[in-house]
Computed example of a mutant assay.
Amino acid sequence: MLESNKALTFEELENDNLMKIKALKICSDLRGGWDKDTVQELKAFHDDYIEIRKELESYREIVNQGWKALQVAQELTNQQNQMKAQMKFIKENLPEHLPTDQGNSRSNSSSAGRNVVQGASSKEEQNTAKAVLPSDGSKVVKGKKNWKPFQFITVEEFETVPKYIRGRLQYDQVNKAVTELNKTLEAKYALLSRPRNKLRPMELKNVHVFKQQETTETAGTRFVVDSDIKQYSKLRLDTAGRAMLTVLRTLKHLQEIRGPGNLMRYAVRSPTE
């Protein structure tokens, strides 16, 4: 008889079994019926089938376990892809600015705020800020007080602003406006701190305008006005820009000082000592 244990595929196993059945029929015909040894051959054939069935059941169980493992792997792959997408979203939408820790000591808050502004500004913004420094290389005269910049807002603060005020504004938009306000503030007061004999005629004219805008009410504050923002920053004072200023005023990150007339000053509160 042919042995089926040499078959490597189901097709080969089927062919082997068909040849066995054909051989048994030939034996039966030659012997004139089912003799004892033919019955033994048939029984052996039956036993082979039982063994094959057991092996198939074993293979089926292995396949089922493999299928379950594949499902688990697919689920893990889906979770990994979701995490990857989330990380990509976080990377692409990471705020350019991180609010300073306003709980720090007063002596450290000013330098920390300036570091945040300088660190958050892009290379282009830093170049713009440098453009307002003296062209003759003279140093800016530092005041005795440590002035603080406009502070960045936190997400928690932004969420407290009523919807009718912030409208469609995004958190990061407001902090970008803070960066532009600080650029304006630093440019204006860098110019004010320079010696008058180092100023060009146009710069002297600007300094004269700055001085005219100061009143007793602005004492102890640094402020900018609309014309300063237009001259020294990229912040557009359209509907959205005005809304950003309103958000900052609502959160008390900015103080408005009005008058005389239509003049509006956007001021930082008292400096740190």
Rank of each mutant, 00 (worst) to 15 (best):
Ile26Asp: 14
Ser28Trp: 03
Arg31Thr: 12
Gly32Lys: 01
Trp34Tyr: 12
Lys36Trp: 06
Asp37Trp: 11
Asp37Phe: 09
Asp37Glu: 15
Asp37Ser: 14
Val39Gly: 06
Val39Lys: 10
Val39Leu: 11
Gln40Ile: 14
Gln40Asn: 08
Lys43Ile: 14
Phe45Trp: 11
His46Ala: 10
Asp47Thr: 11
Asp47His: 07
Tyr49Lys: 04
Tyr49Val: 06
Glu51Gly: 08
Lys54Asp: 08
Lys54Ala: 12
Leu56Phe: 08
Glu57Lys: 10
Arg60Asp: 10
Ile62Asn: 06
Asn64Tyr: 01
Gly66Asp: 04
Lys68Asp: 14
Lys68Cys: 00
Ala69Ser: 14
Ala69Trp: 00
Gln71Met: 10
Gln71Leu: 15
Ala73Trp: 02
Gln74Ser: 11
Gln74Cys: 03
Gln74Asn: 13
Gln74His: 10
Gln74Val: 09
Glu75Cys: 02
Leu76Tyr: 07
Thr77Ala: 13
Gln79Glu: 10
Gln82Ile: 11
Gln82His: 03
Lys84Thr: 11
Ala85Glu: 06
Ala85Met: 05
Gln86Arg: 13
Lys91Pro: 00
Lys91Gly: 04
Pro99Ser: 04
Thr100Gly: 04
Gly103Val: 00
Asn104His: 09
Arg106Ala: 10
Ser110Ala: 13
Ser111Thr: 15
Ala112Val: 07
Gly113Arg: 08
Gly113Met: 06
Asn115Phe: 01
Val116Met: 00
Gln118Gly: 01
Ser121Ala: 11
Ser122Lys: 06
Lys123Phe: 07
Glu125Asn: 00
Glu125Leu: 01
Thr128Phe: 02
Ala129Gln: 10
Ala131Glu: 08
Val132His: 05
Asp136Gln: 03
Asp136Met: 01
Gly137Cys: 02
Gly137Thr: 05
Gly137Tyr: 06
Val140Asn: 00
Val140Cys: 02
Val141Leu: 10
Gly143Glu: 09
Gly143Phe: 05
Asn146Glu: 13
Trp147Phe: 15
Pro149Cys: 07
Phe150Lys: 08
Gln151Phe: 09
Phe152Glu: 12
Phe152Met: 03
Ile153Asp: 08
Glu157Ala: 04
Phe158Gln: 07
Phe158Pro: 05
Tyr164Gln: 14
Tyr164Glu: 15
Ile165Asp: 03
